[in-house]
Amino acid sequence: MELSTLWFLLIAVLWIGYLALEGFDFGVGILTRRFARDDTERRVLINTIGPVWDGNEVWVITAVGATFAAFPEWYATAWSAYYLPLVLILLALIGRGLAFEYRAKGDTETWRNRWDLVIFVGSVVPAFVWGVLLAAFVQGLPLDAGHDFVGDLGDIVTPYTLLGGVVTLSLSLLHGAHYIALKTVGDIRIRARRLAARLAVPVAVVVAGFLLWTVLRDDTPSWPAAVAALVAVAAIAAGATVNARDREGWAFVATFAAVAATAATLFAALYPDVLPSTLDAANDLTTANASSSDYTLTVMTWVAVPFVPAVLAYQSWVYWMFRKRIGVQHIP
């Protein structure tokens, strides 16, 4: 396999990891708003993700850093094109990260309420906008011969990419509901299961519609993309089935797989491009013309081979360490 293909795969894996991990903590963040009935319940939800959300967020830092190192042209073109949406994401992620840490550090109810709003908005915005931006990779952007973006926001925000945003947002919500059901005890746990049951069908419909659109965009649909799309929809269905039987662990695994397969569909549909040009196929950014030199890719491969498994190992250990369910009685 070409090194550039390997790195495309690794970056896809990093995005999959990000969406599947931070996806549920976005979902939990969103559910702190209406789903939690009082401050104690809200704190239960926040504490289910407390020890892990920051580690989850590093997946996107690594995905972007790896893109910079392995495909500088892709990073440069996409990130300058996605300018304002990225500003939105940054503002949201900054506020959200602070809110978790700071909401308990003030004394007044107003202080807490404001940070709660930040948690909600800070979870909705990136869960939605990342979907838009990933879908825009597949859709392509107007790029000139120098691979510079020559369009405006209207070329990024289209019906297709907006649906992509709805997909990541709604999957995060379902994934978050399954996570809450898995990590809590008492009334919250039961309500989370019920909420997940109600969400499953609409989420499945939205995801199926978007993935079908994704696969059919190509004149010659990619088989891996089609298979991944089927897996995604099947995983949501499987999640609903096991959720109905109160198997919360398996339900969570199912939406984890659904998020992963949805992201995999996008990357499979994208390959071998990394960012197609809507102006001229000659201007497409591909794994071949956007990649770093062989030497850089070799160096980075030597770094990734031991350290990606190491990260997976210690991050899994942390999830194991904090495996206990919590409920309102545990909030001091």
Partner: peptide
């Protein structure tokens, strides 16, 4: 990027 991206990715 070919040079500068490597230490950034390693940092992450």
């Amino acid at each position: 990027g070919d040079v500068f991206g490597a230490p950034l990715a390693m940092e992450a």
